[in-house]
């Protein structure tokens, strides 16, 4: 039995607004194997995105422990956790979150600035990532010149360009029409199958969740269940 990639033990995230305490996550225990594809589902405010943010080191738990690849994230300083994110995590967001003033190529190249690569090497990696998502011919376009689906594929290219261990996708199909959503899900599925990436995806969409191997159900910050999907759907 191999060690799980991600281990959460009694993880809570509590927001304090005025005198009130809101448990966005409440004592969550979860283990995720490397190379698996998880979907996190639940109603709004159930804690899905909070969980993803904690795993990606964008936020810190108030209680419990969270380790990735045996490394407790709480032990890392702000700068160390930024470096860890740069090398180990790729993010895909619902609103695409591309830098509007940069071209598709420059957006994809952005995370590589933190790697010890020459400009030519960065260009080469970015071109390869854009090719993987089928957007080589849109490299010089700004985000505003691309469709929603294309922007999300650029975001996926950016998330994989550093060859991270895991890709965290927060509602990646939320702003897309069906065809574009299928294309993105297909892409995530291929990254999982062909490149063995660990993919954690927050979604409201049961069709999107059907593409994952596991579905984690959350409600009011609590982990309700983890279901295994024996036959993940192909988009």
């Amino acid at each position: 039995m191999t060690e799980p990639l991600i281990v959460l033990e009694g993880v809570s995230r509590i927001y304090r607004r005025g005198g009130e305490q809101l448990h966005a996550l409440d004592k969550v225990d979860l283990k995720i194997e490397a190379g698996s594809f998880y979907a996190f589902m639940g109603p709004s405010g159930s804690g899905k995105s909070t969980l993803l943010n904690l795993i990606g080191g964008l936020d810190r738990p108030d209680e419990g422990s969270l380790s990735v690849a045996g490394q407790p994230l709480a032990a890392l300083s702000g700068a160390d956790i930024a470096r860890w994110r740069a090398s180990s995590v790729g993010f895909v967001f619902q609103g695409f979150n591309l830098i509007p003033v940069l071209s598709a190529r420059d957006n994809v190249e952005l995370p590589l600035l933190l790697a010890p690569l020459s400009r030519a090497q960065r260009r080469e990696h970015a071109a390869h990532a854009l090719e993987l998502v089928g957007l080589s011919d849109r490299a010089d376009h700004r985000p505003s010149q691309l469709s929603g689906g294309q922007q999300q594929r650029v975001a996926i290219a950016r998330s994989i360009v550093t060859d991270p261990t895991m890709i965290l996708a927060d509602e990646p199909t939320g702003d897309l029409d069906r065809a574009a959503a299928d294309s993105v899900l297909d892409l995530l599925g291929r990254l999982h199958e062909q490149l063995d990436k660990t993919i954690l995806m927050v979604t409201h969409d049961p069709r999107a969740a059907a593409a994952a191997e596991y579905t984690v159900h959350l409600d009011k910050g609590r982990l309700e269940s983890v279901e295994r999907n024996e036959t993940p759907a192909k988009a």
């Binding site: 990606g56 702000g78 470096r83 994110r85 979150n97 995370p111 600035l113």
Partner: peptide
């Protein structure tokens, strides 16, 4: 602000 959030999420430091 959002661009700053994106940069930080990608691993750029506060500095």
């Amino acid at each position: 602000s959002r661009d700053v959030g994106i940069l930080k999420a990608l691993g750029f430091t506060d500095r």
